[in-house]
Design a protein around this nucleic acid. Structure first.
Length: 274
DNA sequence: AACGCGCCCTGTCCGC
DNA sequence: TGCGGACAGGGCGCGT
C-alpha cells in the first residue's frame, strides 16, 4: 500500500535510472487505469516522443515531468508498482497496465493487480491546480507544529481519519497514520479538534519521524509494494502498532487493540495512547 | 459543508 | 484439494 515513503523511494529510484530518457512508445494494456476522459490514444499523443526531464513526488503520487512541461501523474492506489524493465524482478510483474518503451531499449512498467491506480497527464497550469487541491507536504518546511495545530481546529473527525484526508495532509495512509499516532501516544478515535497543542506538537514530530524512518528503510512491504527496482521495503519489521492486534505493546506491554473507523482498521495501545 | 459509507478490484488467507 | 467468504484500503461519488 504505497504511501509517501514508498512513493518517495520509487521516485528516487526512477530519478536515478530514467531521468533524461525519451519515451519512444506506450502500450496501454488496461485503459481503466487512465484518468476519467483520458483515452489510450490521447495518452499516447501526450507522452510519446517526449523526454523525462524530472521525476517528482506530490503526496503519494509519482510524477514524471516531460520536456514539454506536461506532468504524468501516477497514483499507485493499493497495488501499483513502477518498475524499470532491466531490474531483476521486472519479469515478475504479471499485471502490467501501462508499458512505456524508452528509446534506450528499456521500458518503464506500471503494474497494478487491483487497478486502483490512476494515471493522468496535465499541463503545467492544470498541474498547479491539482497540486493546490492537495494538502501540506508533511516533510516540507512549511509544515510546522503551529500549522498542524491550526489545521486540526474545526474538524470533529477522528484524528486517524483526519490524517488520511489528502486535502489536509498529502501522503499519509493507514499504516503511517496508525504508526504516527502510536508514537505520539494519541488514540486514533480522538476528534481532531480536541487535540491540545502539546498533542499536535507530538503528532507533528511523530509523523515526520515515522515518514523519515520509513523512507530510510525504503518503505513498508505488506504484500504488494515494490520499489523502482522491484524490491521489497524494509520498514515492516519496525511497525509498532499497525497489524499487531493481540500482540504486546512495544512500549508498555498491554495488548494492542483493533477498532474500525470509517470501515478501516485502526490499531492502538489502549494503555499508553490517550 | 463536513463527514461517513459503499463501491471499485483482485490476491491472500482461513475455515470447512 | 478446492472453494466460498472475509479482508486489505486509496480515492471518489453520493447521501445526510
Amino acid at each position: 500500500m504505497p504511501e509517501l515513503p514508498e512513493a518517495e523511494t520509487i521516485v528516487r529510484d526512477l530519478r536515478r535510472r530514467i531521468l533524461g530518457a525519451t519515451i519512444g512508445g506506450v502500450e496501454v494494456i488496461h485503459p481503466d487505469i487512465l484518468a476519467p476522459g483520458l483515452t489510450a490514444v490521447k495518452f499516447a499523443e501526450r507522452v510519446v516522443s517526449y523526454t523525462i526531464a524530472e521525476v517528482e513526488r506530490r503526496g503519494k503520487n509519482v510524477i514524471l515531468v516531460l520536456d514539454d512541461n506536461r506532468h504524468v501523474i501516477t497514483n499507485l492506489g493499493m497495488t501499483g508498482r513502477l518498475v524499470v524493465s532491466d531490474s531483476p524482478h521486472a519479469s515478475q510483474m504479471r499485471h502490467v497496465a501501462i508499458r512505456y518503451t524508452l528509446d534506450d531499449g528499456r521500458a518503464l512498467l506500471f503494474d497494478d493487480s487491483r487497478r486502483f491506480g490512476r494515471v493522468a497527464v496535465l499541463d503545467s497550469e492544470n498541474f498547479r491546480a491539482w497540486s493546490a487541491s492537495l494538502g501540506d507536504e508533511p516533510l516540507s518546511n512549511d509544515f510546522t507544529p503551529e500549522r498542524l495545530f491550526e489545521i486540526t481546529r474545526g474538524s470533529r473527525t477522528p484524528i486517524r481519519n483526519w490524517l488520511l484526508d489528502q486535502r489536509r495532509i498529502a501522503g499519509v495512509g493507514n499504516i503511517y497514520a496508525n504508526e504516527a499516532l502510536f508514537r505520539a501516544r494519541i488514540r486514533p478515535d480522538r476528534p481532531a479538534k480536541d487535540l491540545r497543542r502539546e498533542e499536535t506538537d507530538r503528532l507533528h514530530q511523530a509523523l515526520r519521524g515515522v515518514l523519515t524512518d520509513a523512507i530510510a528503510a525504503r518503505g513498508t512491504t505488506l504484500s504488494d509494494y515494490r520499489d523502482g527496482n522491484g524490491e521489497t521495503g524494509g520498514y515492516e519489521p519496525m511497525l509498532q502498532a499497525y497489524g499487531r492486534e493481540g500482540e504486546p505493546c512495544p512500549r508498555c506491554g498491554a495488548t494492542i487493540e483493533r477498532i474500525v473507523l470509517s470501515n478501516r482498521s485502526a490499531f492502538f495501545c489502549p494503555e499508553c495512547q490517550l
